[in-house]
């Protein structure tokens, strides 16, 4: 039995979610291969081959893989899939976009966003915005799985010594082409990997106030910034800040929910945080039902005071 993990990277840096995905793969007690598909990926290969539990790094380097479009990556993965018992990728937008395409090309199902490996063929995954957990057994010959990163502790990114094998590229499908990207580059930690998250909701009132209030707090705590859907829809924060059922799933040590009511869909994204602090002027806001510490009051008074006293 050999397991394939598909690495997520930007052709330069191996994304940390890959290390969480490798941890899930590790629970299958089999040899693990890591596929790096991209273009001019030498620094990714260097990082990949020393990851602690990888036996072999497979590299496909060609121009048509540079933006990781689903059509081309799926062709590649399909071409090597048959020798593997399990194929895993993190449940990021990269993994979610690509893996179902591979599974369907091979007439197999997919198990999405697992949070636990029970055995070779049985896994647990959240359903209904995390309000229930389904234990699912698969009868497919190859198990296609996306992995919720926050449910698995990352494997060590050093100590390994994997062999590297170059693959020949599959033909360009010419079906799609990335023509633009607006990727937010800040110096804040990545939302899904941050130890502290300061998240703001509709209560912030405007984009200006969102940043005016939350940035100083995030700076003090070296935190990432997050937002509710309402805050993103209203234009206070960019889309990639959204935490929730349909945004990012986070599990930091400390999560501040500021001016966020606590809708099911928001809770789905942050309920595994270690400590939750809620600041809201409405003492009946549902967020207080699951916060460890609650402060009832006007966030425009509380947040600046908190920043001043930290």
């Amino acid at each position: 039995m050999t397991v394939l993990v598909i690495a997520e990277h930007d052709n330069k840096v191996l994304k940390s979610s890959t290390l969480n995905c490798l941890a899930a793969a590790g629970e299958l007690n089999a040899e693990i291969h890591l596929l790096v598909a991209g273009h001019q990926v030498s620094s990714v290969i260097e990082a990949a081959k020393i990851v602690s539990n990888v036996a072999k790094v497979l590299v496909a380097d060609a121009e048509q893989y540079v933006f990781h479009t689903a059509e081309n990556i799926a062709e590649l993965v399909t071409s090597i899939a048959s020798t593997y018992s399990h194929i895993l990728v993190s449940a990021t937008t990269f993994g979610k976009n690509m893996l179902p395409r591979v599974a369907a090309l091979l007439d197999m199902s997919q198990i999405s966003e697992i949070v636990s490996v029970e055995s070779e063929d049985t896994f647990i995954r959240p359903i209904y915005a995390g309000n229930a957990l389904a234990m699912i057994q698969s009868s497919d010959a190859i198990k296609f799985i996306t992995v919720r990163a926050t449910a698995f502790d990352a494997v060590l990114d050093s100590g390994g010594n994997a062999e590297v094998e170059m693959l020949s590229a599959t033909a360009d499908t010419l079906l799609s082409e990335v023509i633009g990207r607006e990727i937010s580059a800040g110096d804040r930690p990545e939302l899904t990997a941050a130890a502290v998250i300061v998240s703001g909701g509709r209560g912030l009132g405007s984009e200006k106030k969102y940043y005016q209030l939350l940035e100083p707090l995030a700076d003090k705590l070296s935190a990432a910034l997050g937002a509710s859907r309402a805050a993103v829809d209203a234009g206070f924060a960019p889309n990639d800040y959204q935490v929730g059922q349909t945004g990012k799933i986070v599990a930091p040590d400390l999560y501040f929910a500021i001016g966020i009511s606590g809708a099911i869909q928001h809770l789905a994204g942050m309920q595994s945080s270690k400590v939750i602090v809620a600041i809201n002027k409405d003492e009946d806001a549902p967020i207080f039902q699951m916060a460890d510490y609650g402060l009832v009051g006007d966030l425009f008074d509380i947040v600046p005071e908190l920043v001043a006293k930290l």
Partner: peptide, 8 residues
């Protein structure tokens, strides 16, 4: 995840 992408 990182923001927005335009695909043709």
């Amino acid at each position: 995840d990182g923001g927005l992408e335009t695909l043709k």
